[in-house]
Every structure is written in C-alpha cells, then in structure tokens.
C-alpha cells in the first residue's frame, strides 16, 4: 500500500483524534495547515464535489501546489469527489480520481458505488474514504464498502448519537470520522432532494444545496426576508442574527404554528464532547466549511487544535468564546450526538 510520509507520521499516536479541515481555496489550505490541521480536504473546481460553489475549489495545478505546501508541513490532503455521476457521463469523475491519484493525494473521499468501483480497480493503492454523502449509518453498510472496495475510513452521517457511534466502532474494521464543527444537515446526507425540489439544483447531482443563485434578501419594512427560489425561508427582525436561507433551516408553519421545524440556523460544535468521542473510538474530527472564508478556517482550526492538544495532555478543554463569532445564527448545538436532538 502506498502510504505517504505525511500520513505515516501523523498516525504516530494511537487512539488519537486527527483534525480534518476544510479548504475552499489555496489560501484557506495554507491557513488550515498553518493553524495545525493534520489533514485538509478539498475538491476540484467542478461538479465532482459537493461544494461546487462559484469562485471556490482547486484546479489540478492548485492542488499540486497545495499538496507540496501541506506535505512539507506534515499535513495530509484528502480530495472529495463525492457527487453522483450523471448517467452516461462518468468521465469527469474518473478523470478527477486519476488526477488525484497521479498527484499523490493521501486519500480520496467518495460516495458513488460506481465511482468507488472505478477507483478500487484503477488505483488499488489509492486510499479510499467513504463520504458522508454515501450515508453509511450502520455496521453492515460500512462492511459492504470496506469489503467491496477496500474503504479504510467512513465519514459518519450526522444521524448517530455518541452511544451509537461507540457501539458501531466496536463492530467495524474501518476508521470513523465525525463532523465536529460547522453547518449541519438535519437530514441523512446524500439522501436529501429538498434542494432540487425547490431550486432544481441538488447536492447529489450538481454539488450544491440551496445555491446562492436562488437566494434573495428582501427588505420589508424593518424586516429582512431571506428567500430561496419562490419561497420565504425566514424573516429576521432588525436585531436578530441573520442566517443563510438553507431550506431546512428556515421557519415554517405546521398546524398553524411557525417554528424552526427541521433545524434552527445553528452550528454544530462538539468541543464539550471531545473526551466522549475519543472514548467512542472515533479516529478523526471533521470541520465543515469549505465555502467559508479563510479567517473562519484559521479560527476554528486553531480552537480545535488547542482543544485536542489539551485533551492529549489530559487537561480539561479550554473555553473557546471566539467560536461564537463564526457560528451560524450565533447559536451552537451538539446535534444528533445527543439523543435529545431527535
């Protein structure tokens, strides 16, 4: 198996939490590496990844430069190729895998069975991670991807409690990576068509959810109205913290009552759960937010770096008030990791 120097070194401490950080641009990659990421994940500038936003992502040349920068500083690079190819046109996805493999990335993060099959056959030495978009939420699903394609790590869908994760880890032969901070889907990822129902653009096919092209902000008197397509997603008062109109994070009316029915505009933050997640056998923490600015990346990565290091030394986790600034709606949640969320 081809193991890069960066990877071999970073796994020196057994049972440790690896910090996996988002990079939407080369500048964000450098910010994440400098702030102490053990790996950054990124995508190509096309529909092959689930953050296919304008102005974001990497050309093959930028990936090559980024790899050089990261590897020189003992940091791994994972490439997300995690949308589902259109029928009859899988070439772009195959090219993305070939390119990532040729450039020597440390792993590719995949979701589609056909794409996994291609990668496993064409690049047997390429390390495969299973994207959250594959929605592998139980031991048998994970075993399937491991046995069929040699998947070595699975990014768990944000539907499991810490107890579920601990139980799962005792039954599977692969590493698990869990979301630690940032925007969160209340739905099982990769199995959600809400965005395409409302905007025609979907995470699975186009690589976007609630795309900016369909977002409008309108003023109505003293209120700010956020709209997606033809629908009002939320209405903010002058003093409210605003939110992006992600369609599952708006206020809707059920039985005559308005509420954040699916999820409030809030950020996942697992800092208080770090010791529990370590005990549950989790291998890596993933920071969400390839679409966020490099200031966000630097801030969040530094905070988690400090927290994990404190955990390593057996110290209690320091308070991180600075994270409040970058959270959506300026609110935090421990999400599905706590049963009460359901």
């Amino acid at each position: 198996m081809a193991v890069t120097g960066a990877r071999a070194k970073s796994k020196a401490i057994a049972g440790d939490l690896e910090l996996i950080c988002p990079a939407g641009t080369p500048a964000a990659l450098r910010a994440a590496v400098d702030a102490g990421a053990e790996a950054v994940y990124l995508g190509f500038r096309d529909e092959t990844n689930a953050r296919n936003f304008p102005g974001l992502n990497f050309s093959p040349e930028e990936l090559a430069t980024g790899l050089e920068y990261a590897h020189a500083r003992n940091c791994m690079v994972f490439v997300a190729i995690n949308t589902f190819p259109r029928a009859g046109a899988p070439e772009a996805w195959h090219r993305a895998i070939d390119c990532a493999a040729d450039l020597g990335v440390d792993a590719v993060i995949l979701a589609d069975i056909g794409v996994l099959d291609y990668a496993a056959r064409q690049h047997p030495d390429l390390r495969l991670h299973l994207s959250v978009q594959a929605s592998a939420s139980n031991a048998e699903a994970i075993r399937f991807y491991h046995e069929e394609f040699g998947v070595r790590r699975v990014v768990l869908p944000r539907v499991l409690t810490v107890e579920d994760i601990a139980e799962l880890n005792s039954r599977i032969p692969v590493e698990t990576e869990v979301f630690a901070f940032g925007g969160m889907c209340p739905m099982a990822e990769g199995r959600c068509l809400l965005s395409s129902y409302v905007t025609g653009k979907s995470p699975n096919i186009t690589g976007v959810c609630s795309p900016a092209s369909h977002v409008r902000y309108e003023e109505r008197g003293s209120e700010l109205v956020s709209r997606l397509g033809d629908f009002t997603i939320n209405i903010f008062q002058q003093s409210d913290a605003a939110g992006y109109p992600t369609l599952c994070k708006g206020r809707f009316v059920a039985d005559g009552r308005a509420s954040y029915l699916f999820e409030a505009p809030t950020s996942l933050n697992v800092l208080p759960l770090l010791p529990e997640l370590m005990a549950a056998g989790v291998s890596a923490l993933k920071i969400e937010g390839r679409q966020r600015g490099r200031a966000y990346t630097a801030q969040v990565v530094a905070a988690f770096r400090a927290a994990i290091d404190a955990c390593r030394r057996g110290e209690s986790i320091p308070e991180m008030p600075q994270l409040a600034d970058v959270t959506e709606g300026q609110r935090e949640t421990s999400g599905a990791y706590r049963r009460a969320w359901r």
């Binding site: 209340p186 199995r191 809400l194 059920a254 699916f262 969320w341 359901r342």
Partner: peptide
C-alpha cells in the same frame, strides 16, 4: 425527499 433521525411530526407537536 429526505429522511432524518429526527421526527418532524413529533417536533410539530
């Protein structure tokens, strides 16, 4: 269109 660990009918009530 979507499935969740969370029950929205329960939440609505």
């Amino acid at each position: 269109l979507a499935i969740s660990a969370r029950c929205y009918h329960a939440r609505a009530h």
